[in-house]
C-alpha cells in the first residue's frame, strides 16, 4: 500500500522523516542494509528520485552511508542514532507543547496532566 503523504510539504522530507523514525525505533537496525531506492519507491508509491533525495538528506545527517556499489547501510554509530532519537523527541515535545498552549494550558498544568495520564496508563 502506498504511504500517506501530506502533499503540501516536500515529499522527500517526509520520506527522510519516515526512514529516520524507522532507524531510531530499530526497525532498520544499525549496520543493516537499507532497501534499495527502487524497492522503497515502489513500496511508498513515489518517484525514485525523491527517495534518492531523501537518502542524501539522511546521509548528510550521518544516519546512513553509501558503501560503494553495495548499496546504502544504516550507520553503525550509536551516537548518531541516539542524537537522531533525541532530535525527534525534541521535535515531538515541541509540537506537543505548542498544541497544549493553543488549548490554553500553562506549562505547569501541562506537566500535571502528563503525570496523571502516565500514572493512569501504568496502572
Amino acid at each position: 500500500m502506498p504511504w500517506d503523504f501530506d502533499t503540501s510539504v516536500p515529499v522527500y522530507l517526509q520520506i527522510a522523516e519516515t526512514v529516520r523514525r524507522r532507524i531510531v525505533s530499530g526497525e532498520y537496525e544499525r549496520g543493516s542494509q537499507l532497501p534499495s531506492v527502487r524497492d522503497l519507491a515502489v513500496k511508498a508509491a513515489v518517484n525514485p528520485n525523491t527517495v534518492q533525495r531523501a537518502f542524501m538528506c539522511l546521509e548528510n545527517d550521518g544516519l546512513i552511508e553509501t558503501r560503494g556499489t553495495m548499496g546504502r547501510y544504516v550507520t553503525d554509530s550509536l551516537e548518531s542514532v541516539e542524537a537522531a532519537r533525541e532530535t525527534l523527541a525534541q521535535d515531538t515535545i515541541g509540537a506537543f507543547c505548542r498544541r497544549m498552549e493553543a488549548l490554553g494550558y500553562t506549562g505547569e498544568d501541562t506537566i500535571e496532566l502528563l503525570k496523571k495520564t502516565y500514572e493512569g496508563e501504568t496502572k
Binding site: 502506498p2 527502487r38 519507491a41 515502489v42 508509491a45 513515489v46 518517484n47 525514485p48
Partner: peptide
C-alpha cells in the same frame, strides 16, 4: 499502473 511506472524507472 503507478507502481509499474515507478519500477520501470
Amino acid at each position: 499502473i503507478l507502481s509499474t511506472i515507478i519500477s520501470n524507472y
